[in-house]
C-alpha cells in the first residue's frame, strides 16, 4: 500500500486515460453535448421562445423535412427544444454537483482529519441525511419554494453531498496515517497547511471521480423533477418536454418522437458522465481484476514436454 505511488503524473495519467476506451467514449459523448449546448442558437433550426401558430396539423406533426423530429403539443419543433434542453441539464448538473462536492468534500476532510467529537457529529448527521430518501425530499422542498432554476440547483446541491462526505472521510482517514503527514505534524505544521498541501491533493482524484458521478445523479434528479411537473417554466428542459408530452396526449397520439427524443438526450448525457467516471476510476485506481477462480488454461505452457511424460 504505502510504496505504491499516490499520484499519477499528468503524462502518465493521460497515457492510461487515452487507452481506456470507456473513459474516452464518455469524454467524446460529453464534448458533443457541450458543443450542442453552447452553440444551440446556431444549430437549432427554430427558436423555442418564439411563438407558433397552432393549427390541427402543427400539433404532434410527424417528423418531416421542416421538422426533422416532428412537433410537440404546442406545435414547437422538437429538435430545437431538444438542442436547447441540453443547457438546463448541463447547468443544473454542473452547478448542483459543485455545491454537493464542496459541502461533502469539506465535511469529509474535516471529519476525517480532526476526528473526535467533530467527526462523530458530522458523520451522525451524514448518516441521517443518507437515510432520508433524496428524491421525495427534493420534490417537497422544490414544490414549496417554487421551481426556479436557481432553487432546483440549490436544493439538489444541498441534498446530494452525503456519499461524497463518507468517501472523502474514509480517504482522509487513510492519508492522515501516512508517514509524510505524521512527519509534517511532528515538525509542527499548521492544520491548514497540512490539509492544503498534504491531504487535499490526495483527496482530489477521488473528488474528481466522485463529482462526475454526482453530476450524472444531479442530471437524473433534475429531469425527474421536471417530469413530475417541477420545472422552471421559463426554460426548456428535457424532463419538462416529457412532462408536457406525457400529460398532454402524446401517448394516445402515438407521437413517439416527442417521447423518445428528450429521454435520449438524458441518457446520452448521463451515460457520458457515467462512462467517464467509470473510466476515470479505472485509470486512477487500477484494480487487477483477476482472482483465484480466474480460468488459467495457460498455467502449464510447456513447448516441448520432457520425454518422461507418457
Amino acid at each position: 500500500m504505502t510504496d505504491q505511488p499516490l499520484l499519477l503524473s499528468g503524462a502518465a495519467f493521460w497515457k492510461s486515460f487515452r487507452r481506456n476506451r470507456i473513459a474516452l467514449a464518455g469524454l467524446i459523448m460529453l464534448a458533443l453535448a457541450l458543443f450542442a449546448a453552447v452553440f444551440a442558437p446556431v444549430i437549432a433550426p427554430y427558436d423555442p421562445a418564439a411563438s407558433v401558430e397552432i393549427t390541427i396539423d402543427s400539433i404532434y406533426a410527424r417528423p418531416s423535412a421542416a421538422h426533422l423530429l416532428g412537433t410537440d403539443d404546442a406545435g414547437k419543433d422538437v429538435l430545437s427544444n431538444f438542442i436547447y434542453g441540453s443547457r438546463v441539464s448541463l447547468t443544473v448538473g454542473i452547478f448542483a454537483s459543485f455545491i454537493s462536492i464542496v459541502i461533502g468534500g469539506t465535511l469529509g476532510i474535516v471529519a476525517g482529519y480532526l476526528g473526535g467529537r467533530t467527526e462523530r457529529v458530522i458523520m451522525r448527521f451524514t448518516d441521517i441525511m443518507l437515510v432520508i430518501p433524496d428524491l421525495p425530499l427534493t420534490v417537497v422542498i422544490v414544490a414549496i419554494t417554487k421551481p426556479r432554476l436557481l432553487n432546483i440547483i440549490l436544493v439538489i446541491g444541498l441534498i446530494g453531498w452525503t456519499t461524497t462526505a463518507r468517501l472523502v472521510r474514509a480517504q482522509t482517514l487513510s492519508i492522515k496515517e501516512r508517514k509524510f503527514v505524521l512527519r509534517a505534524r511532528s515538525i509542527g505544521a499548521g492544520h491548514f497547511h497540512i490539509l492544503r498541501r498534504h491531504i487535499f491533493p490526495l483527496v482530489l482524484p477521488l473528488l474528481v471521480v466522485n463529482s462526475v458521478l454526482i453530476i450524472s445523479l444531479a442530471i437524473l434528479n433534475e429531469s425527474t423533477l421536471s417530469f413530475l411537473g417541477l420545472s422552471d417554466p421559463t426554460v426548456v428542459s428535457w424532463g419538462q418536454m416529457l412532462n408536457y408530452a406525457f400529460e398532454r396526449g402524446a401517448m394516445s397520439s402515438r407521437a413517439w418522437w416527442v417521447l423518445v427524443t428528450p429521454g435520449f438526450g438524458i441518457v446520452w448525457l448521463v451515460l457520458g458522465f457515467t462512462l467517464l467516471g467509470h473510466g476515470l476510476e479505472q485509470v486512477l485506481n487500477p484494480r487487477t481484476e483477476w482472482h483465484h477462480l480466474t480460468d488459467h488454461p495457460l498455467m502449464v505452457s510447456l513447448p516441448a514436454f520432457p520425454e518422461t511424460h507418457p
Binding site: 450524472s216 437524473l220 429531469s223 425527474t224 417530469f227 424532463g239 416529457l242 406525457f246 401517448m251 402515438r254 413517439w256 417521447l259 423518445v260 428528450p262 429521454g263 438524458i266 441518457v267 448521463v270 451515460l271 457515467t274 462512462l275 467509470h278
Partner: peptide
C-alpha cells in the same frame, strides 16, 4: 449495467408503456 443505470426511470417506463400498450 452502466447503460441501465443511466436510464431515467420514468422515461424507461414511458417507452415500455408505449410499446407494451401498443
Amino acid at each position: 449495467s452502466l447503460l441501465a443505470w443511466s436510464l431515467p426511470t420514468f422515461w424507461l417506463g414511458i417507452i415500455l408503456l408505449f410499446w407494451g400498450s401498443n
